[in-house]
C-alpha cells in the first residue's frame, strides 16, 4: 500500500484551565483530543462523527494547525506540520484547506465574492494578476455559481450559496485535502443534498481527499468511504462507512445508530432503541478506564480500570472495546 496522504499519530490537543487574575494557577486540563491515530488516503472521504464536545472540531483544527498540538504528529505527504516552521506550515496550507460550519460567519461580509476568492491566489502567488479574474470565474462555475455574481457581497446570497463560496475558497489553491467541519448542519434538507452532491462530485473529479465532520450519521454514511466515531477525545470505532453504520460493534456506535430517527413510521415505532442514560461526561474530568463505561449498558468492572486501545484492523475495522466479541 502506498503511503497515506495524511497521517496522524497519537495526536493530543490539551487546553490548560487557569484561574485567578494575578496569580494564574493551573487548575486542570481539557483533554479535547487525547491520542488519535488516523490516516487518510488520496481521494478518500473520511467521515468523523460524534456528539458535541467529543473533540471532532478540535481534531479538525489540530489537523489545520489552527490550535497547537500537545503531543503526537500530523504528517502530510512526509511533511511534519507539528514541528514545521510557520513558513513551512503556510506552504502546507496550500494542500490543506478547511470549510467551516456556519457560512454566515465564515465569510468576510465586507469582501465581494471576487475578493474572497482572489485573496488566496494573490497570497500564494499562484498566477499572474491578470489571470486572477478568469480563475475566480472558473472556481465559481466549478461550485455551481454563475460567475456574473463575482462582485456581489455574501449577504446577497442564501445559506447554500454561501457554503458554495466557502467551498470555492477552499478549492482556490487546488488542495489535496479539505477538512469540512459540519458543512451541511446549518442548511435545510433540500439545500443539504445539493452541497453533499457538490462535495462528492469535487472529490471524484479532483481526486481530493475529504475529512467530513458531522453529527448526522445518515449524511456521513452517504458521503464517506470510511467512518471514525469519536467519544471524549478518542476514536472508539473506525471502518468502512456502510459496515460501521449497518453493523456497529462498539456499544457507543450502536447507541448512536439506534438514536437516529428513521423516516419510516412502521419501523420507527417498533424497533428497539438503545436510549443512553445521562449526558456525555466532561473532558476535564473524564471517567477512569473506558470513558464510555458510566453510560454503557455492557460495562463490567474491568471497564472502569483499563483504557481499551483501538484494536488491530480486521477487514479494515478497528474497535476500542474490551468486550468486543462478547457482546
Amino acid at each position: 500500500m502506498s503511503s497515506p496522504l495524511l497521517q496522524l499519530t497519537d495526536v493530543k490537543t490539551h487546553f490548560p484551565i487557569n484561574q485567578g487574575l494575578i496569580f494564574r494557577q493551573h487548575v486542570g486540563t481539557v483533554k479535547a483530543v487525547d491520542g488519535v491515530t488516523l490516516s487518510v488516503a488520496r481521494g478518500e472521504v473520511l467521515g468523523l462523527v460524534g456528539e458535541s464536545g467529543c473533540g471532532k472540531s478540535t481534531l479538525a483544527r489540530t489537523i489545520m494547525q489552527l490550535v497547537p498540538t500537545t503531543a503526537g504528529t500530523v504528517v502530510l505527504e512526509g511533511r511534519n506540520l507539528t514541528t514545521g516552521s510557520l513558513q513551512e506550515v503556510r506552504d502546507v496550507r496550500r494542500d490543506l484547506q478547511m470549510v467551516f460550519q456556519d457560512p454566515y460567519a465564515s465569510l468576510n461580509p465586507r469582501l465581494t465574492v471576487f475578493d474572497t476568492l482572489a485573496e488566496p491566489l494573490r497570497v500564494h502567488g499562484v498566477c499572474p494578476a491578470a489571470e486572477i479574474p478568469a480563475r475566480v470565474g472558473k472556481l465559481m462555475e466549478r461550485v455551481g455559481l454563475a460567475s456574473r455574481f463575482m462582485q456581489k457581497y455574501p449577504h446577497e446570497f442564501s445559506g447554500g450559496q454561501r457554503q458554495r463560496i466557502a467551498i470555492a475558497r477552499a478549492l482556490a489553491l487546488e488542495p489535496k485535502i479539505i477538512v469540512a467541519d459540519e458543512p451541511v448542519s446549518a442548511l435545510d434538507v433540500s439545500i443539504q443534498a445539493q452541497i453533499l452532491n457538490l462535495l462528492s462530485k469535487l472529490c471524484r473529479e479532483m481526486n481530493l481527499a475529504l475529512i467530513f465532520i458531522a453529527h448526522d450519521l445518515s449524511v456521513v454514511k452517504h458521503i464517506s468511504d470510511r467512518v471514525a466515531v469519536m467519544y471524549l477525545g478518542k476514536i472508539v470505532e473506525l471502518g468502512p462507512a456502510a459496515e460501521v453504520i449497518e453493523r456497529p460493534q462498539h456499544p457507543y456506535t450502536r447507541a448512536l445508530v439506534s438514536a437516529i430517527p428513521t423516516p419510516n413510521p412502521d419501523t420507527e415505532r417498533t424497533r428497539q432503541r438503545i436510549v443512553l442514560p445521562g449526558d456525555p461526561p466532561s473532558p476535564i474530568n473524564p471517567p477512569s478506564g473506558c470513558a464510555f463505561h458510566p453510560r454503557c449498558p455492557h460495562a463490567l468492572e474491568k471497564c472502569k480500570t483499563a483504557v481499551p486501545p483501538l484494536s488491530a484492523e480486521v477487514a479494515g475495522r478497528s474497535v476500542a472495546c474490551v468486550r468486543l466479541g462478547e457482546i
Binding site: H215, A255, L256, P261, L276
Partner: peptide, 8 residues
C-alpha cells in the same frame, strides 16, 4: 441537541 439526547 445531540442525537442520543434527542432520543431521551
Amino acid at each position: 441537541l445531540d442525537v442520543t439526547v434527542q432520543a431521551q
